[in-house]
């Protein structure tokens, strides 16, 4: 009798493939979200609020309810949904351009109100779907299709630290930065997502899980070199760890 050691989470549709580029960590994060929903048994009361960009590629293959928000507006859309329907667990899923550039006002305002939903924030330092333009989180020395010489402080300012910025506010419950570069960090990311969801179900307010990821396609690196770049550069600028946990 064969023993089943692993099976794909039911929260990913059985007959679908993700469509993400090789080495992209979106698919890893989505698997983790799916597993957490599966393990918590909350698919019947969970819905995703998707940002614009590669974030939205999940809509066709994940199994939970979802809504696509206008670019940057996920935290406003989620505010309306959660306030109107508090019994459902809502999480936004947004990239750095969506959350920290065009949607910065919505993100900061929702965090400041302590809205009781969860933000899953994918920080890969670049605009993915549109082809590698400069993001608020782009590193110095990282070339972008709209910054051919890379980020220059005088012109573009500095890489933005979302967790630390939100940590200036009183309301947020849980702010954490993780990555998916090692098996250990994958597990920590899953734990962070679970914790954020549990806080939401307990009505504790705004939680944000920032996940530092790679974008091999737009970084112009293969999957392994992208991992090296992430460890040597991204994690130096964006150190991992719990920024706030009110408990």
């Amino acid at each position: 009798m064969a023993e089943c050691l692993y099976s794909r989470t039911k929260t990913i549709q059985e007959d679908k493939v993700s469509g993400f580029c090789p080495g992209c960590m979106h698919s890893t994060v989505m698997k983790l979200i799916g597993e957490v929903i599966d393990e918590m048994g909350i698919i019947d009361r969970t819905a995703a609020v998707l940002g614009i960009g590669c974030c939205g590629l999940q809509m066709d293959y994940m199994a939970y309810d979802n809504i696509t928000s206008p670019h940057g507006r996920a935290c406003a859309v989620a505010t309306g949904m959660k306030r109107a329907n508090p019994d459902t667990l809502y999480f936004t899923y947004q990239g750095d351009g969506d959350l920290a550039s065009i949607g910065l006002a919505e993100t900061v305002s929702a965090a400041n109100r302590g809205e009781n939903f969860t933000v899953i924030f994918i920080n890969n330092g670049i605009y993915g779907m549109t082809g590698g333009q400069l993001a608020p989180t782009t590193l110095f020395g990282m070339k972008a299709s709209t910054a051919p010489k890379g980020r220059i402080a005088e012109e573009h300012g500095y890489p933005m630290h979302v967790c630390e910025t939100l940590n200036q506010l009183t309301a947020p419950q849980y702010l954490v930065r993780t990555s998916c570069n090692t098996p250990q960090n994958v597990m920590k990311t899953k734990q962070a997502i679970r914790k954020a969801f549990e806080y939401q179900l307990a009505g504790k307010g705004f939680s944000l899980v920032e996940i530092v990821t790679s974008c091999p396609t737009n970084w112009g690196l293969d999957s392994l070199k992208a991992l090296d770049f992430l460890e040597e550069n991204m994690l130096k600028e964006y150190p991992l760890g719990v920024v706030r946990d009110k408990g």
Binding site: V49, I67, S69, P70, R73, A76, V77, A78, T79, G80, M81, K82, R83, A84, N85, E106
Partner: peptide, 8 residues
């Protein structure tokens, strides 16, 4: 967008 969310 809040209204879009709530109405949804």
């Amino acid at each position: 967008n809040m209204v879009y969310g709530a109405a949804s």
